[in-house]
Design a protein around this nucleic acid. Structure first.
Lengths: 332, 332
DNA sequence: AGGTTTTATGAAAGCACTTACATTGAGAAA
DNA sequence: TTTCTCAATGTAAGTGCTTTCATAAAACCT
């Protein structure tokens, strides 16, 4: 059996110390290019492959962070992912994305990930988990930070959806719109996360407070997807009893409304005003007024917090509440 | 770092030495049953899992695929990623994304990833690499499939950008537009990938063939980003010598042109027609005519091909050329 | 040139375990 | 009782790699 080549062999062959070889493996930019060349040469000559087990042992960790995310299709998830990536860019952590499609999958990941040792830390994005899961995370010492959903006494980055709804109401009413409507996503119960409902709740309460109108007929839910959004919006905008302004629980939906309005030859905001939620990249392109929850930033924060938990298991868990911000563009 | 319990903890808890614990793990019959009991007790109480075992399990059951992608901000990357994820969904592969920001980073990943054994297969997305890199991949037996960029005799999923450009020209001319313009992304040389240039080349050749007009002033490049796109489009659309139709090397840019047109109160397509490239999700929302390269599908294909290479190292490498398709909506 | 900061490197101390070797104390044989 | 085994356990030296710290060399600054 061929004797394993180790970094010692490589080091000897290249006439340098093992430390430098190791450094080359982990952060090549810290090694002079001249040395780098020598190492590369030696490694390829000896066809060296580091022993994963030894690496893991020496690092006492696998250096991987997992992200549990709804099967990414919604832009908002991508933006958060971007924030996470950014925060991890100059650490030595690899990012593994676990895209969740069904409730079963979610359950399975939640129970398996802590045990298998595939990751050193986990970010749960916009997905619900139970106190049981938390218990398991604790037992296996898996640090977890969640986004857009939280558990008591467990770190998370959240926004105040109720407040967001209220802000929307206040803003629209103040702009002079009295007959309001709401469009949200129904669909998958597992993912709903109350976020939509909370936004609606806040919206309602704001409306009551300020004395405007939100007819039952003007509260609509539809499945995730542009088609549905457009369809739904058409239904909303057609009748004579048309709302003056529509608040959507997400930008994607707002874009659907925009499209429907165009098809019905309605001017925005002259005939209907549209307000979204999220401020995804596209919102800017489309001049959509919306409520910004700093998506990139929230991902970033989650990653930072997770790193803290990982480097210091005693770090107190904390909930971060991101502030929301009305972004006025040309649809309101 | 997940504070793993070690055999030291177990040993301490059981009041014996680590060697005995280790022995218990490896050959339990060498340990007195009384001691054995104590160890078992301590282990279960501390929910101890030997690191090496965890590593081994993590490595044997689950393999890893890396994706090298431009720091993802462009929707087209995300869609391809989605396709990859989808293809991997019911396999036992974890997906690790490496977001590349600079040329140095790219170089570093390309040279280090094959060596470190962190991944079992690699997908390179829209990023250039050299024959040298290919050599290295071979040497370290790392299966690689690339997207939107290829190497001779190496598996990749590509599209014919020149043809795409030609299609654009043909289509626009046939629609009756004679004065044409082109907008592409300049910016980072590392990422450009010729794609833009090739599309322009094809566009030009198509125009020559059919005898239409493409003034030098009507060929513009700008940096990546919506701001730049809009700015650039404004410049293009302002003067009296305005083009009748604009072909953009990407949908994002086309959206920028749409926005600029709106700001300048130009009707689309009555005053200017706009044709994009990619057919990203948003294109549909915006009713943008475009040339579709099935992004999701290409990611999917790449993943499938990679899996094939991984399970059978002798599988012949192959280039897949995806076909392009004009999607006519309402901007042309 | 002189001093200071930066960068590249090596020495050596871990990491979580394994294992060869040493030690201990019982029981068996003398 | 003394000696000899031998099973049960501990000690400590590896394992291949990472990482901290110190140092030497190079790059910057007046």
């Amino acid at each position: 059996m061929a004797e394993k080549t180790t970094i010692y062999d490589v080091a000897e062959h290249a006439g340098i110390s093992i430390a430098t070889v190791s450094r080359f493996l982990n952060s090549p930019d810290k090694v002079a290019s001249k040395t780098r060349k020598k190492i590369e040469e030696a490694m390829s000559k000896l066809s060296f492959v580091p022993l994963a087990e030894a690496v893991a042992r020496a690092r006492s960790g696998i250096r991987r962070i997992g992200v549990l995310t709804p099967f990414f299709t919604a832009p908002s998830f991508v933006q958060r992912l971007r924030g996470i990536h950014e925060a991890l860019a100059d650490t030595h952590y690899d990012l593994i994305t676990y895209a969740v499609d069904t409730y079963e999958q979610l359950k399975s990941y939640l129970s398996v990930l802590p045990v298998t040792g595939r990751i050193d830390g986990l970010i749960i994005m916009s997905l619900p988990f139970t106190e049981n899961d938390v218990e398991r995370f604790r037992q296996y010492h898996l640090p977890v930070v969640s986004l857009e959903f939280g558990r008591p006494a467990y770190s998370s980055i959240e926004i105040d959806n109720i407040l967001g709804g209220r802000m929307a109401a206040q803003y629209l009413i103040q702009k002079g719109y009295a007959k309001l409507a709401f469009i949200g996503e129904g669909g998958q119960p597992a993912y709903s996360l109350h976020a939509t409902e909370q936004r609606l709740e806040g919206f309602k309460s704001g409306i009551i407070q300020q004395g405007a109108q939100l007819l039952e007929d003007h509260i609509l839910f539809h499945e995730y997807g542009m088609k549905y959004a457009v369809e739904c919006a058409k239904k909303l905008l057609k009748p004579s009893e048309r709302p003056r302004a529509v608040f959507c629980a997400s930008d994607s939906q707002a874009i659907g409304v925009l499209k429907a309005a165009k098809m019905l030859k309605l001017r925005v905001p002259e005939d209907v005003a549209v307000l979204g939620f999220d401020d995804i990249d596209t919102a800017d392109y489309m001049d959509l007024s919306t409520i910004r929850q700093s998506l990139d930033h929230s991902g970033h924060l989650a990653a930072i917090k997770l790193l803290e938990h990982m480097s210091n298991p005693l770090a107190p868990s904390a909930k971060v509440h991101l502030s929301l911000q009305i972004v006025e563009r040309h649809t309101t």
